[in-house]
Design a protein around this nucleic acid. Structure first.
Length: 587
RNA sequence: GCCGAAAUAGCUCAAUUGGUAGAGCAACUGAUUUGUAAUCAGUAGGUUACGGGUUCAAGUCCUGUUUUCGGCACCA
């Protein structure tokens, strides 16, 4: 997908198109007031106050027609510079413009306006020469959006659109949007029976169906093995904790709003846990630790519950019940860098195994101005942030910094990915924590025989199994590598009557050797059964006729390919097993 | 949570201004016995998400709830 914001000409074009949109809206809704209309990666939008009016699909079409009309008329776009005082006077009746102008820098005394025909908008520019250059655009969608992005403010109407230089690019873009819907994990999840939801179970509470459960189990086994080799100790802990546990950790004060409400049993107060840190802190505290034991790495596939806003839940990506691929690493201050490095290396290793390339590392730092949101210890923050940067540079990892995105208790490194539909989400995370060990009064004995407080690294490589599965579905478009495929082999005898027994024999042979195999000996034509195997995206389809039966061979066809290969069954099994064990990616 | 939209058979969708809820696929039964993406015929399948209201009459209009979708906000 073309990133419009990064292409200078397209960027200018889309910005001018945003103005064209505003002009058209003004023609149809004379009382409309305009906030801002920036260019974004996928095009542009404009935030508009329409008073009591609400938009509809029809209104959007009408606006688009009006835009075409204005563009065809072909007025020039004229820049004019006026003083701040003049601007305030000119836009005196527009509270949004007054707000914008009055918040501009003191030294910015000249303000630019752009006029096209009967419409003038405050704007830094630059713009196209004329609106007649705008020919290939489309309004995509509309929605509400809070003024200044603050939920305490009034909600404006936001219209999204996109503009290109020619029809081909526009059509290609629209086709890509359609294609994205096709690989949406919610669509594939339903088609391939990976998971379901039910309103009686509740929003954001997915039920993993047998097919999805196979994938999840494979992911669990995969990461468990990796973590074992890296010295992690896996544990099981309860999904509930007392309120006091979360008061001790501090989550009760900072996170209560996002937890399911407290439940009272007799006189005790419990909550469903939203994270596992407190439990793992107590496991660390269960015995004395020497500096020689550290790092201690406690891992768990832990089910957590978070009361996500109703408007936020989405498929397997944003849920209220999730399973974290969680671990807490207890380290000495000196070990922070080395251990952080190991985590980042593990992330890179895993992403390589899955062939993932479209992700970004985000180093989330505190906003030093915001004393409310962040644990107050300047030295701790500065040292920790410097340490993380140092390791990332050492590893040569590309990353960007996000001020104000850190957790309350420390800086973190997140991996951001873009789902088929919707904004970016965090997959992997590694967070530094100086606070929780203190709150739980954790200690280890250092080399001088003194008690010292360890530092904790929270980390989740897959993030949650739910979200990672969603992402893998979209990355593979439902064509999972063989090791993850719910069904790895489909056996189809040409004729059930003549080769049915042979089909059963082959199926049993593969199943006994640990292959996930299904036999389709229904009384249907070969083409019909083959088609179904293809639409289900089964990696290997075996076709067994008289020739195969006589020679004790199998003929296989790879998903998406037309030709078949004939092999003795032992050779096929050997090949398949190698592919599965090496976790090969699909070509 | 907020601004909008939507919910009809297992799935994908129809159903003029309010006037007998249909189709394709899937399922089931039978015929057909198949060599690389859909064989034919028949059968069954619904309190139109759930509650309340308006009306002679509601899938359709009003209203509450739930869920879903597009965004926004949130994401210790």
């Amino acid at each position: 997908m073309i990133n419009i914001k990064e292409n200078e000409h397209l960027s200018i074009m889309n910005h001018s198109c945003a103005h064209l949109l505003a002009q058209a809206v003004k023609h149809i809704y004379p009382n409309a007031l305009f906030w801002v209309g920036p260019v974004i990666e996928e095009g542009f939008y404009y935030d508009i106050d329409l008073g009591d009016e609400t938009l509809t699909e029809e209104a959007l079409e009408k606006i688009e027609r009006e835009m075409k009309k204005i563009a065809k008329d072909g007025k020039r776009i004229v820049r004019e510079e006026i003083s701040k005082a003049d601007a305030l006077e000119k836009f005196a009746n527009d509270p949004y413009k007054v707000d914008l102008i009055s918040r501009m820098d003191e030294d910015e005394q000249v303000i630019s306006c752009y006029t096209q025909g009967d419409f003038t908008d405050l704007c830094r520019g630059p713009h196209l020469e004329s609106v007649k250059e705008l020919k290939f655009f489309k309004l995509i969608k509309f929605s509400g959006a809070y003024w200044k992005g603050d939920a305490k403010n009034k909600m404006l109407q936001r219209i999204y659109g996109v503009c290109f230089e020619n029809e081909e690019d526009l059509n290609a873009h629209l086709a890509e949007l359609e294609e994205a819907k096709e690989r949406d994990h919610r669509k594939i999840g339903k088609e391939q029976e990976l998971y379901m939801n039910h309103e009686l179970v509740g929003a954001g509470m997915p039920l993993w169906l047998p097919n999805g459960s196979i994938i999840r189990k494979q992911l669990e086994n995969y990461i468990y093995e990796k973590e074992q080799k890296l010295g992690y100790d896996h544990v099981y802990t309860p999904c509930v904790g007392t309120v006091d546990l979360y008061k001790t950790s501090g989550h009760w004060d900072h996170y209560k709003e996002n937890m399911f409400p407290m439940m009272k049993v007799d006189e005790e107060e419990f909550v469903l846990r939203p994270m596992n840190c407190p439990h793992h802190m107590l496991i660390f505290k269960n015995k004395m630790h020497s500096y020689r034991d550290l790092p201690v790495r406690i891992g768990e596939f832990a089910t957590d519950f978070r009361y996500e806003a109703s408007g936020a839940v989405k498929g397997l990506e944003r849920v209220r019940c999730m399973c974290q691929n969680d671990a807490h690493l207890f380290v000495t201050p000196e070990q922070i860098g080395e251990e952080f490095k190991k985590v980042v290396s593990l992330i890179l290793d895993v992403y390589r195994d899955f062939g993932l390339q479209n992700y970004k590392f985000r180093l989330s730092l505190r906003d030093p101005e915001d004393k409310e949101k962040y644990f107050d210890d300047d030295q701790m923050w500065n040292e920790a942030e410097a340490k993380l940067r140092e390791v990332l540079n050492e590893l040569g990892v590309e990353y960007f910094e996000a001020v104000g995105e850190a957790a309350f208790y420390g800086p973190k490194l997140d991996v951001e990915v873009k789902p088929a539909v919707g904004p970016e989400v965090t997959l992997s995370t590694c967070q530094l924590d100086f606070l929780l060990p203190r709150r739980f009064e954790l200690s280890y004995i250092n080399s001088k025989g003194e008690k010292e407080t360890p530092v904790v690294l929270h980390r989740a490589i897959f993030g949650t199994f739910d979200r990672f599965t969603a992402f893998i579905i979209e990355e593979t478009k439902g064509r999972f590598p063989t090791w993850l495929s719910p069904v790895q082999v489909k056996v189809i005898p040409v004729n059930a009557e003549f080769q049915g027994d042979y089909g059963k024999e082959i199926k049993d042979y593969l199943a006994e050797n640990g292959i996930r195999v299904e036999l389709d000996d229904r009384n249907e034509k070969l083409g019909y059964r083959l088609r179904e195997a293809q639409t289900q995206k089964v990696p290997y389809t075996l076709i067994l006729g008289d020739a195969e039966k006589e020679n004790n061979t199998i003929s296989y066809r790879l998903h998406g390919e037309k030709d078949t290969t004939t092999l003795p069954k032992e050779e096929f099994l050997k090949m398949l097993k190698e592919e599965i064990e090496s976790k090969s990616l699909r070509k």
